[in-house]
Design a protein around this nucleic acid. Sequence first.
DNA 1: ATGAAAGCGCTAACAT
DNA 2: ATGTTAGCGCTTTCAT
Lengths: 354, 354
Amino acid sequence: MSSRPPTGSDVARLARVSKSAVSRAFTGGVVSDEARRRILAAARQLKYRPNLTARSLTTSQSKLIGVAITHLDNQFYPEVIEKLSDRLASAGFRIVLFITHAEANLDPVLDELLGYRLDGVVLASTSMASRVAGECLEAGVPVVMFNNIDLNGRAPGVTADNEAGAATIARFLIAGQHKRFGIITGMAESSSSVERTRSFVDTLVAAGMQPPQIGYGQYTFDGAEKAMRAFLNAPEPPDAIFCVNDHMALAAVQTARAMGLEPGKDVSIIGFDDVPIAAWPAFGLTTYAQPVKAMIDTLVEHLVRALEGRPTLTKTTRCAGRLVIRSSARLPDGIQIDSNGLAIWPTQASDQTS
Amino acid sequence: MSSRPPTGSDVARLARVSKSAVSRAFTGGVVSDEARRRILAAARQLKYRPNLTARSLTTSQSKLIGVAITHLDNQFYPEVIEKLSDRLASAGFRIVLFITHAEANLDPVLDELLGYRLDGVVLASTSMASRVAGECLEAGVPVVMFNNIDLNGRAPGVTADNEAGAATIARFLIAGQHKRFGIITGMAESSSSVERTRSFVDTLVAAGMQPPQIGYGQYTFDGAEKAMRAFLNAPEPPDAIFCVNDHMALAAVQTARAMGLEPGKDVSIIGFDDVPIAAWPAFGLTTYAQPVKAMIDTLVEHLVRALEGRPTLTKTTRCAGRLVIRSSARLPDGIQIDSNGLAIWPTQASDQTS
DNA sequence: ATGAAAGCGCTAACAT
DNA sequence: ATGTTAGCGCTTTCAT
């Protein structure tokens, strides 16, 4: 059935114009109204669509953005991908997906990543992100890091304001009269985890509190559960626990319940992300919401800037989020409720570039 | 920095061979060991990688598979995408993502979908899937439907065995001595929803039960919650409710609890999918597990077959899943527990092509 | 405003 | 085994 998709030449012949005229008609060039009419008619008749692959060969623009990401089981990322896809689509770009499993050998992935002559690459929490970023940059492909920083400081990035977020959480917990703190961290090489952890610890200590006990959750449900059990079985269990992402916080909430403790009452648990299910009645997770929309906007801005050849920043933009107060952590006195029915804890604004 | 990526000619020149030799070296053609050595050395030195775009122009194979999907908020799809990406990657294909929001105008999407000369397209629960399938097929692009059927019966597809699943659920509920049934459906145009609903109703009626009350959940959390409230506030509320996917079943569980009812005790709720969080302690959702792995394998098989020009089936393959029994629905007597600690309800095998 | 011609980087006959 | 040649389908000078 599929003889061969029609080409621009086919259309040109039928419309009795040159190939160039067809090209112009489809790329917004100058064509007389009469010619355009004939071309469009011929194109419709033949069901012609410009071959984007051929176009990209001449324009050296693929209109394709690579997105590298590890596992989608953290609810946060599907959300990010969906929003990113939308924003990029309206700018005429499509996403080529690279789901990387901390593979031993990066080279095949790199060959593809660079072979497709993608217009840009987004590196979201990929293992070996800095190495990949370096190679892309060397090949002249713009890179933007997402919730992740280039250790070599060459690629721009966008993250939530991890410092402010973790500090806000610490202060909220202190204000709630908690005395013994715990933290469940993510992967050791994750900058998000590191930054949130450091800020949480620093804020606690600066306020004269004991530094928190540390559990290593590896960003997994099971890891968080294990860490939580260790906390709660200890002689002096923490009464306030910060999990560096919601996925683990949700695990912590359930583990606490399984051990007969009611989150928000017997023990306070706070997460980071504000994934959709954090708001579910079964959890009511208090968490620091990442400003996904703002982050994506910034990300796309970086990308577009680089694409237009404008000088690309190599800074990491940190977007301020906000603490969404629900029921998994005990409230301090004097909390306000906003118009959405969400409690809002005053947090100093911070949306600067650092 | 980015002068211009090196081309095969650059490598050829440096290695003092012809372009074709370089091409052969990178595509597994015949080259003498000596030549290959020089070529590879030159390539490494120049950091050369074949331009996949140019290659696809000559081979008319892009090694790109389009995946169209609506919203990722149903936990089931991230899982599918991840597994699909893995399987395709090992066959040398990458995914180009098309997240479609029931848009008014499909044409721009189609122009892209077909413009990239994708090697194949997967249509997963997209609105207008049949229309899109038709256009792709006409353009000579292989299409496989996922959990969705081509109304015109031209594209092959793979789904879970919805009939068997819903029937198993109905029988399980009947065996559990339930008397009044309810069902919360998805979108009216979703074949999965339609098939599951029909089979559930038919099985109930064939067993001499009253047909279920119907709630329209639209596949959304809010829709399911609303339907659930209507059920439970009625004078004669159902004591057993089947939600055609887990996303809604999870909403139903929480709604029941909010109304003071304990799922599995006061009311039975069963879902369909077995998304990861269905297994979380907070839910313990009894649900019919879609055999994702088998489905993906079959899907990729269809794709590869079409790609190799082998005669493509236009049948829909229905993969048998299994009922995973947890705590959200009252147990019949005589249930067995398998080695995973999951209860297994005997279900007749069914993995045929229909 | 339009067409002719060149070329993007690659592979695939077709020689040799 | 290797090189030469001719495209793949498009955009883009450059003339006219």
